[in-house]
Every structure is written in C-alpha cells, then in structure tokens.
Nucleic acid binder design. Sequence first.
DNA 1: CTGAAAGCGCTTACAG
DNA 2: CTGAAAGCGCTTACAG
Lengths: 352, 352
Amino acid sequence: MPSKPRRVTQREIAQIAGVSQTTVSMVLNDRDGTNVRIPEATRARVKQAIEQATYVADPAARRLAGLDNQIVGVFTYEPALSPESMDFYGPLLNGLERAAERIGCDLLFFTSSPVEDGTRSLFHRRTRLRLADGCILLGQQMVGSELGRLVAEQFPFVAVGRRDETTAAVPYVGIDYVTPTNELIAAAAAAGHQQALYVHRGRDSPTARDRRGAVESASASGQLSFLLVGEERIPELPRLARATGATMIIGEDAFLTEDVILSLTAAGLSVPADLSIAALGEVRGHRTDGHALAGFHVPREQVAAAALELLQQLIITDPQSWPGLDTQRLMRAEVEPGDTIVTAPNPDQDGS
Amino acid sequence: MPSKPRRVTQREIAQIAGVSQTTVSMVLNDRDGTNVRIPEATRARVKQAIEQATYVADPAARRLAGLDNQIVGVFTYEPALSPESMDFYGPLLNGLERAAERIGCDLLFFTSSPVEDGTRSLFHRRTRLRLADGCILLGQQMVGSELGRLVAEQFPFVAVGRRDETTAAVPYVGIDYVTPTNELIAAAAAAGHQQALYVHRGRDSPTARDRRGAVESASASGQLSFLLVGEERIPELPRLARATGATMIIGEDAFLTEDVILSLTAAGLSVPADLSIAALGEVRGHRTDGHALAGFHVPREQVAAAALELLQQLIITDPQSWPGLDTQRLMRAEVEPGDTIVTAPNPDQDGS
DNA sequence: CTGAAAGCGCTTACAG
DNA sequence: CTGAAAGCGCTTACAG
C-alpha cells in the first residue's frame, strides 16, 4: 500500500487564517445558528485561506462524522452497461444521470458485487452500500430478502419498477400500464372491434399481471372480448383469429408483437388491413411495413428521475416519518396511437 | 438531517466474541504478520460473530484510517449516459463495467460536477474525488490544467485516449491508428491504387494528427499519393476525383465517409465499382449498399479494461515508483478489410 | 463570538 | 497471542 499523500486539512487552513479548526468547519458548512455568529471579517479570512490552499473536504471524514455524502448508490442485478441491456437500462441510466446532475449528487455503481451462491448480492462482505446516502435499485427481477433487509435496516432506497418480491413496504417508482391499456382497448372498441386476441409471455411479474388483468376485465365487461394466448402459440395465430372472428391482436410488448406480425404475414395476412395490431409496451422505434406500431410510450427517463427525487426525500426525512410519505408511485405510460389500429370490418356487412 | 441509524460495529462484534476490538479488526483483515498470530479458535469465534451479526465494515471509516476503497472514480467531461453519447461512451463504459466486476471494484460516476466558469470541473468545492482510490477520465477533450493538477497531486488516474492538453506526463491508454492506417494504405497500394483523396475534419487532436501524418508520409514516400480535402469540400469530391485521377477515397471516420459516399452516389458514381472507399475509424455496423465498409475495428472495450488495469497498478504502487511504470499505452486498432476496396482500374488499360 | 474536547468506526504501531 | 491507545479528518455539543 503506497503512503497516502497527505492533503491539506482544516487544521492547516485554521493555522493560515489564525483561527481554530472548529471555526473553519463552521465557515465551511455555513453554520450560522443561534449559538454561532461568525463575523464577516473572520469568515472572509477563512474563505480566502480555503481558496488559496485549494482545500477540499475529505468526504470520508465528513461521512464518518455523520453528514450526508451526496452520493447515491446504483445497484443492478445484471450488468447495466452492456449493449444487450441498453434497451432496458439505457433510458433509465440517462434519466438518472440527468437528475443526478441537477440535484448535484454522484452515482456509485456497485459493479463489484460478486456472484455468491448463484446470485448477485447487494450485501457482500465488502459492500460499499453504506458509503451512499441511499440507493436506487434497478432490474427486472430483484431478490425479496435483500429488499426486506433494506427496509428492516431503514436504509433509504427506491426500486425502479413495482415490486412484489416481498411483503415489506418497498418504496418504488413504477409504471402504470392499466390506465393506458384501458384507453387503448377503449379506442379499439370505438373503432368497432369486438373480438381480439391477447398474446402474452406467461410471466408472473406485477406489470404482466396488470396488463393481463386490464385485458381480462375489458373482456368480462363485454367491452372487447379477448382470447388469451401464450407466446408459444404464435404460429397458430392465423387459425385462432379466424376461428374466433378476432379483428385485432394485442401483444404484451413490442418485440413479442413483432413476432406476431411475422407469423401473420407468413400466413398471407396483411397488417393492419386484415388485422389491427397493438402492443402494451414501448413502441417508439418500432415500425411494421411503414406503419408505426400502436402501443405505449413508457417514460423511463422520467421514472428514473422520479425515483431519484423520491430517494432524496427519504434521505432528508427521518425514518420515523417515512410512513407519512407517498413512497409507492406510478408514472403513467402514454398511448401512442400509431397506424396499426384501423376500423374493424363490420361483421354485419359480411352477411349482406 | 435524519439521525443516522446505528449500524453494528466492530466493538459489538468484539463483545459478542469476547475479544478486543483490535482482534476483530485483525481477523477481518487477515492480519497474520510476524507480531500477530491469532489462534484458529479465536478466529473462528470472531468470524461466527461477524456472520451472525451480519457485520459490514463502514467504508468511510476504513478509508479515513488509510485503507483503500476498491472504488474507482469515473469522470466524463460531458454526459456519458445519454443516447447521443452512447456511440462513443457505450463501448468504453461496457469495458469499464466488465473490468470493474472482474477486479471487484465499484465505479463512482462524478455526475455532480457542476458547470463553473463555463466548463465542467473535476475540482469543485465538494468534489468526492478523494473518496476514490483513483480515477478514470473519459472524454474527447479534457482540460489541461486539471490533468496537470492531478499529476501534481500524485492522485492516481488514467485518461482514456492519448492526451496532449498538458506537458505533464499524463498516464493514458489510447489507440494506435498509425499502424493500421499504414496497413490499410499498403493494402490499397497492393490493389493497384496510386492516387487517392483523404477527407478529414480539420481537427487538431492527437489521433487526427496521427492519421493525417500516416497519410502524408505514405504520400511522401510515393506509396500512394494523397490529396487532403477538408470536409467542407465533400460536395466537390466527384470533380476532385476526376481531376486528380484518384481511384480511392479515404475518410477520417465512418460517419464522414458515409457523407462522402452520399456525395458520390448523388453524382451517379458507384461504390466500390467506380471508387474504392475506406474509413480510418470504427466501421462495425457501417454498410453501404450491401457492402461492408472497409476501415478499422477500434477495441474500445479493451482500451477501457486496460485503463482500469493500469489504474490498479498506479494505485498499488508508491508514487515514487511511478516513473518506472509504462504509463502511456496504445492498443492497436485492427484493419477490417470490408468490401469497399477493390482492385484499381489499370490506368494503362485506359489508353489501350 | 470562538475554542477545547469528544466522538464517528476503523487500522496500526506499541506494549504487555 | 491480545489489548489499550493514538490517530485518520471531520462535526457538533459544550464551555467559556
């Protein structure tokens, strides 16, 4: 270990300015309370010494003495900066970076977290978690026990995405898929669609359940009847559409929906002429044969920014008062009308 | 400021295990030197207490006591996580993340650095730079005075990209463009090309100079004669090629080269049938009309990994001994042959 | 208004 | 082999 080169400290500043180290600290932190009132002259002298000696406070010492750090931890359960993960993490990281710059905090990525017992863990022996004032958790899937431990230890953190890995009250900022799903279904119904297929991945995540739930209740209310189809049955879609008289197919997300379209066009069907199509996920950048895919815009940048803001609130609030905060927030995805929902062929006209 | 919830400390572990706090520290850090020899029994007792109490050392205290942190700072002179910057930063960040995971260190992004006096500065009043063991600097353009100060303060850091912003000996890992440029020109000459155009952006960065220098010396040696053309003259390229008899055009980078191709095809010229084309930069993912663009593969992931490894060396080496280290390294870009360099039309045949 | 002192949680000589 | 003590650089009661 190399000898840590000594930096200029408050003590030296104090000597230069001819005051005590305490006074330097007071000036530095603008402590001008009831019991302390430092005359402008002293203050100026100290400030000048600080300037002249290019003093910078040691963050470790500040932290140890109990102050906050302006450092926010970022933990992802998988690599966040690889090309493959950019689709999902890119907008989130972008939103985090911008919000961090605005708030004035640094971002500590816990890239070290080793794989132990088969899963990446936030709590390893040498975790630097405590160095951060709080932590943002990113990832499609999180570990319930770790979320629980964070809650139990009253460590400020916010998860991105609605969580159900634990019964503990996990602070999160997630995405409201229900409202836009209802809107999109209403629009489809208004366009004359009565029978549709919903193609899903069969996952059991909160957002997957949300979307499926909205679809099912639209179906139950008779607004638009759905047949739910697992992704493994995509090849059968042309047949299923014919058999049910469906005039529309909705996919759980854009990528899945692109597979759906491939299956349809392979069977000689044309989109949206023969079948209207939509995805219950981000569709920006997704086009099909010149048509903009109908679906949602998911404001991930804003979600990340909102998560950081919520985290700041938690950090400056005493844990005692956390229950009074609104710590579970949803940002609404917006409907992107696109060009792939068209008026349904009138079934009555078929018979005429 | 909320009351910092108390964490379990070494003192408590010591009480549980019935030893002194010093012993706990010794066990924790595997201090088994000449003067200390802790019997296995004690050691086991302490370890069990640590386990049971889920003790994690306070990184701030460790740091303050003079140990290293396993935290590497990352500073970029512009936002690194925005979609626009992903082209350049993406591969670097990916390489950093992977190397950090392997080495076991966390990455502290100095996203806070505010804009002061018109430029983003690493040294602001509250910089957390000192919290990191060392720092990686990323960016096309850096500030010479800050590089100089880092050198003067003997703070371990490594810049990505060859630097010339200061006369100080800046540790860096950069890219060797000269070797592959020579190779590419040799290949072009071997394919019969004798006259070419080099389209550049007129920048004065080290890598721009390297490329231009290699082009000029090839020209001077008679291997392949070049006319150097600024990017503003791209519209004139068809005329210039005809006037000079050039059979090939090389662009400084792939994006510029794509503009070149647009200009040529707009004039009714075909690539590579009428003119061979290459770029002196990363060409992966760049195709032109079904042809893979000839140029380089720039191993940015490896550059980032090498930078982190060099930084680790600096960190564990006493600054006294830094001069003995090879702190300025170049990784060679590789030639990607592509499909856009074809045999030159034989000028003699023209006359026959 | 200002300073001496205690304490944050750790490491490392230094004595037993 | 093990512990008491000093010190890392800061903040914050607490006395003057």
